[in-house]
């Protein structure tokens, strides 16, 4: 859901190919399971903050839980409730959510190589292709372990994230006035925490500064929600002009 786990590194995958059909040994299996469960539970836990913010933004408990079950991508979910809570339009909320979710499509390019799934399993794998399942999967040194890590992490996050969303929505309803409890500020803090681990390169820092400038300068002029979409320009400008000058080409800035 967040990028707190490392972003994937496609290059490592090919090295594990020859081990794809060997049985995975007990100690390694245990290590992968332990890592997957701890990432899954830790990530799922902050579904509680999403649940509380969802009802604070004016969604019903059922709508808030439906976002966690069906959308199942933390950044996009926070974007939807953040923009709705700030008075933005539905189309701005949907557009921002979708743009933020594009990275999951990139992750899927990598996990599809590791998983090699088809039919129903592919449909299920797509749904749980998120920051954490990808990071754990791509971080393994052979493909069997990568598959195990993907599924256990993805399904553990799914279970805990949804359960904790429900808890958060119930807590949020019980709290009442969201401003009194600082819940509106919690949304800003949640986005800060989602952004933080992505600021590892100078290109990322430059993109952030430019995006903040674009959002603040256009806010008084455009409908709520549109300035956030316009920040895409910051990624395009830095992405097309950057590289080379600031640092070595891309994958090296990944932890």
């Amino acid at each position: 859901m967040t990028a707190s786990a490392a972003e994937p590194r496609g290059e490592d995958v090919a090295e594990g190919e020859h081990t794809a059909y060997l049985p995975i040994d007990g100690a390694k299996r245990k290590a992968v399971l332990r890592q997957s469960l701890s990432v899954g539970i830790a990530t799922g836990a902050y579904g509680i903050s999403f649940g509380a913010l969802g009802v604070a933004a004016g969604l019903t408990t059922l709508q808030t839980v439906a976002l966690s079950v069906l959308l199942f991508s933390g950044g996009s979910q926070f974007a939807v409730v953040g923009i709705l809570g700030a008075g933005g339009t539905g189309s701005a909320a949907v557009a921002t959510s979708t743009l933020l979710g594009l990275r999951n499509g990139l992750y899927a390019l990598q996990t599809s190589r590791i998983l090699q799934v088809h039919g129903l399993r592919r449909l299920l794998a797509a749904h749980v292709t998120i920051d954490e399942s990808t990071a754990v999967s791509v971080g393994q040194d052979d493909r069997r372990a990568g598959r195990l890590g993907f599924w256990v992490t993805g399904l553990t996050v799914f279970a805990f994230w949804n359960a904790m969303t429900l808890v958060g929505a119930l807590v949020g309803n019980a709290l009442g006035d969201p401003q009194r409890w600082g819940l509106d500020a919690a949304a800003a803090a949640a986005f800060t925490a989602l952004l933080w681990p992505r600021l590892r390169s100078r290109d990322a820092a430059a993109t952030m500064v430019l995006a903040i400038a674009v959002a603040l300068l256009t806010s008084p002029l455009l409908p709520v929600g549109v300035p956030v979409i316009l920040t895409v320009l910051a990624a395009v400008v830095v992405g097309l002009s950057g590289g080379g000058r600031h640092e070595s080409p891309l994958p090296q800035d990944v932890p």
Binding site: L100, R103, T207, A211, A215, V228, A235
Partner: peptide, 15 residues
């Protein structure tokens, strides 16, 4: 890769 950085930074600013 920079797309989520830009959008999240914009969300932080606006929120």
């Amino acid at each position: 890769t920079l797309l989520p950085v830009a959008l999240l930074a914009g969300l932080v600013a606006v929120q």
